[in-house]
Computed example of a mutant assay.
Amino acid sequence: MSEVFMFLSLNEGGVPVTLVYQLAEELRRDPGQVLLVQSLTLDKNRPLLGLKGAFGLFGSKEWWANIEQRVMPTKQLSGVIVKTYYSGQDGDMPDNTMDLLLEGGAICTEGIYVHDEEDVGFYQVGSRVDIFYAFDPLKDKNSSRDKSGASKVVIEVAISPGSVSV
Rank of each mutant, 00 (worst) to 15 (best):
V34P: 07
I67H: 01
D99S: 10
T97A: 11
D43C: 04
I81K: 05
P31I: 09
W64V: 01
A54V: 08
G91I: 09
S39G: 03
D92G: 14
V71N: 13
G88V: 06
P47N: 06
L42T: 05
K52F: 06
D99P: 02
R70N: 15
A54H: 09
G56K: 01
K83A: 12
L35M: 07
K75I: 01
G79N: 02
W64K: 01
G91F: 15
T97C: 13
E68M: 03
G59V: 05
L48H: 11
W64Y: 04
L40Q: 11
S60D: 06
Q33F: 10
Q89F: 15
W64D: 01
V80A: 07
Y85D: 08
D43A: 07
N45M: 10
K52M: 12
V34R: 11
F58D: 02
P47L: 04
K75W: 13
L36F: 07
Q76A: 14
L51H: 05
L36N: 12
S87G: 09
V71I: 15
L48C: 06
L57F: 05
N66Q: 07
K61I: 06
L35T: 12
G88C: 05
T97L: 10
E68C: 04
P73N: 12
Y86F: 15
Y86T: 12
L48N: 13
V71H: 15
A54L: 13
D43R: 04
L77K: 09
N66D: 07
Q76C: 09
P73E: 13
G53S: 13
G91C: 11
R46F: 01
G59L: 02
K75R: 12
F55D: 01
K44P: 08
N45G: 05
K61D: 15
S87Y: 13
I81Q: 03
L42V: 01
G79V: 02
D99R: 04
D95H: 15
G50I: 03
V82N: 08
G32W: 11
M72W: 02
L51Y: 08
D43I: 05
P31N: 11
G56A: 03
G50V: 04
G32E: 13
Y85H: 14
F55P: 00
D90V: 05
N45D: 12
V34H: 05
E62H: 02
M72H: 03
W63G: 00
L36Q: 14
L35D: 14
S78L: 09
T97E: 14
P73W: 09
S78P: 05
G88R: 14
W64R: 01
R28S: 08
R46N: 08
L57A: 07
A54C: 07
G91M: 09
W63T: 01
M93P: 08
T84N: 10
D90F: 14
P47E: 04
L77R: 10
L51S: 06
Q69I: 00
N96H: 14
G88E: 01
V34E: 07
M93H: 12
L36S: 08
T41Q: 10
L36G: 06
G56Q: 00
S39H: 07
D43P: 02
R46P: 00
A65T: 00
Q89I: 13
T41L: 03
Y85Q: 12
D92Q: 15
W64S: 02
I67F: 02
